[in-house]
């Protein structure tokens, strides 16, 4: 995630606190999604941006995870995101994101 976006998130958290804040990601590539998710959870992995060493531990979800899909009205989901279920590996994405959330709770 580029430094500008990290700065925006950090500012947002400084202003609003982390209470009730949730991050939802839409990258089709599992690795790309993973990097973004880990950055907002554990901090900037390259230790270069404003989130370097900042472990926000925000709950993070991917829009293509089955458990996310379940709570969105199906007509809206189908129109806005459903198509990417055919394109992306949703199982792998789900596994990656469950692991990141699990790790964030443990540590």
């Amino acid at each position: 995630m580029d430094t500008e976006k990290q700065a925006i998130i950090k500012q947002l958290v400084d202003d609003m606190g982390t209470e009730g804040l949730v991050v939802v990601i839409g990258a089709a590539d599992p690795e790309v999604a993973q990097v973004t998710a880990e950055t907002v959870t554990f901090g900037d992995p390259s230790f270069a941006g404003p989130l370097a060493g900042v472990s926000l531990r925000l709950p993070v979800y991917h829009i293509l995870e089955p458990e996310v899909k379940k709570v969105i009205p199906q007509d809206v989901y189908k129109e806005q995101a459903g198509f990417l279920e055919l394109v992306a590996n949703t199982e792998e994405i789900g596994k990656i994101f469950r692991e990141i959330r699990g790790k964030a709770r443990e540590t």
């Binding site: 590539d29 790309v32 198509f83 055919l86 394109v87």
Partner: peptide
């Protein structure tokens, strides 16, 4: 990511 691959998969979809 691999941008062309994602776009080709979308056309395939």
């Amino acid at each position: 990511g691999n941008v062309p691959l994602t776009n080709y998969r979308m056309i395939g979809a």
